[in-house]
Each structure stands twice: as C-alpha cells, then as structure tokens.
Amino acid sequence: MTLERFIQLWTHRYHKYSHIFEARLLGFRARSHFRAVKQKLKPSQKLIAVVRTEHFGDIIAAEPIARYIRSLHPDGYIVWFVKPAFHELVDYNPEINEVFREFCVTQRQTLMDGNVFDQVIELQFSNNNHCPKCQVFVDNPVAVRRDITIFNYFDYGNLLEVFAQTGDLIPPKSPFPADDQPRLYLQESHRTKVDSLHLPDRFIVLHCQSNYKPKDWPSDRWEMLIDWLAATYDYQIVEVGMKSSLNVSTNSYRNLCGQLSILETGEVIRRAKFFIGLDSGPSHLANATGTFGMILMGALNNFLNYNPYSGQYGRQENVVLVRQAGQPCCDLTFEFVKEKVKEVLDKESEISQLS
C-alpha cells in the first residue's frame, strides 16, 4: 500500500467513524429530550413519531397523513422526522406538535432503540432509507412485510396511498380513507418575499430539471417551448428550481432558479396562471397550491403508466398529464408537448374572451 493510499484510507475512516460517533451522541440526546416530552404528557396522550425525511415532493404528497393521524389521535403529540433541508414543509403544519430535524438514519436508529415513542409510523419503502456516510440501511418492517420496495411501490397506488400502507395506516392496496388533497402552509414571510419580486399578473411557471435524470425532458426542447410560448401568447415565463440548464434570450423569460426557498417557490407557483413541469417536487407544490398543471411524464423504470399524485392532480381535475404510453419523458417530441400545451392555453383564451 502506498503512503498516499494509506492516508486516503485513514482519512475516510476518520470521517466515517466521527460521523457515526456524532450520530449516536445526537441519538442519545434525542432520547433524553423525548423522554422529557413524554413525562409532560397526560397518560392518555400518545407520543407518535412519523418518519418521512425526504424528498420534498414526497413530503408534500404525504401531508394528508398528518391530518389523518390527528383524526385518529386528537390529543396525541405528533413528531415528524425530516431532513433539515426540507423542514419548512412541516414547520407550519398545525397538526404537527414538533419537527425533528434528523441528522442521519443512525441517529434515528439510536433514538428508536430507546423505545421512547408509543407509536412509530414509517412512511418509507424498503431499500429507501440509507446514510452514505454511515454506509448503513435502516429498513421499515411494515414495508418489508408488505413487500413495498423502490422497485414496485407504484404497484400499490399513488404516493399518498403507498406511504399510508408503509405506515400500516391502511390495508394493502387500499384507497386513502380521508381528504387526499395535499396542502401547503404558506406564511406572510413567503408572500412578502414574492411581493418583492414584482412578478407580472399573467405568468406561467416552468420547472425543467428534476433530481432524477430519467424524468427529465431535453433542455433544447424546453428552450424551443419557451421561444414558442413567448412568440404566441401574452404570458411572462418564470423558471423555478435549484438551477437552470437553459440558454434563453427572450425578454419574456425570467430565471428564479436557486433564489427561493421551497415555500417561496410554492408561493410563486400559487400566483401563476399555469405550471408546466416534470414529475418532481415543484409539481407537487402546484398540486398543493391549486395551480393548473401540465406535467411532462413518461414510463419510469418498471412503471409504464403511473400517477404519483393524490387530490386534484390524482383525479386529473386540474392537470393534464403530458405523456405517451410506454415512452420515457425524454422521448416526448417538441411538437407533441406543444400541441398539449396549446390545447390548454387556447381553451383558456376562449373562456377569457367569452367572459
């Protein structure tokens, strides 16, 4: 072994075991915290953990579960486990008593080994809970028993229904038994931020890049779509997301990528006339805010024809799912997408003229 390789090996081990030590320490501290919380509860009150730590579209899709659990346990103390990057999605939910910003799965495992919670509701698939630094998986026994994995989960319904099943809240392959429309809890600070952007009255929001390449549509076709929209309709076009891969020169286009928090992005989408995007987090924001959506979708891995949404998008009451049977999103042609968008925008123009 060379000296350089020896240094690399022990640097890796140092970071790994330092991380594990910190995670376990934080887990023991969390045990003490929740034991103190439990001591303050009445004997009839349950201390309930809900685990859905990522991704932000999944957390939005799972929001009705918080209301459903509250209906089952009106006086329960509900704690939602979430990664720090996504905490704002649950911070303002009135049905949740406390948001636990999880350091990693080893911290959670250390906490749960203390048997502090009266009930743990895991909204996680099998093979879906991994810490790359600890290099460990933490499995959900309900998902294992029901054989719900990252390879077959859409065989069990939409995301909300799947999460409710992995949490042992409903029988296998059952519809969600309560209000299934996801909600977003926007605050005055989010409205104030978006006010400062001075957006026009009529604009369309675009989200053009997901966190999973197979869901994406090529950048050159997005650019063609923007150019066509700008030349044909009287709408400003606003792109949101983490970053943009587009090269657009039209004055009708504005790039807000990387400038907004998740809920600020939600407020921008709420104000938009239309949302055009991918099967990704911002499309769940659009569903939750009631903005009409045009969602570019396709076959995804093992799932040839699926609908991840509940509520209005799930019933296709406020959305057009732009897809062709058996084709991945990247194979949708510009002309096909343009015609689907044109149908929606022309119909809107006709309604506006009549009124």
Rank of each mutant, 00 (worst) to 15 (best):
P64C: 03
P308D: 11
L184M: 14
L285H: 09
L3C: 05
H15D: 04
P64H: 02
N302M: 09
L47M: 11
N255H: 02
L186R: 09
K347D: 13
I170K: 09
D118W: 13
A288S: 12
G258N: 01
P282R: 06
S189N: 08
V144T: 06
P218L: 03
L186A: 06
N307T: 12
K215F: 00
E348D: 15
K46M: 14
A231Y: 04
S244W: 05
Q209S: 00
T232V: 05
V90W: 07
I204T: 00
K46L: 15
H12E: 14
I96D: 05
D279V: 08
N152M: 03
A62H: 01
F154S: 01
Q119N: 13
Y309P: 04
L3N: 12
H198E: 11
L354E: 14
V344L: 07
F203K: 09
V341Y: 00
L199S: 05
F336L: 06
R52L: 08
F28E: 14
Q124L: 13
I170E: 04
F151M: 07
L296R: 08
A178R: 10
N93I: 12
L260G: 00
V341D: 00
Q316T: 09
L354M: 12
V138K: 06
R101H: 11
V344N: 02
F203S: 02
G277A: 03
T192H: 12
S352F: 14
N302S: 11
T11F: 07
N140V: 03
R221G: 00
F203Q: 07
T192K: 15
F274I: 05
S252M: 08
K213V: 05
F81R: 02
V90A: 12
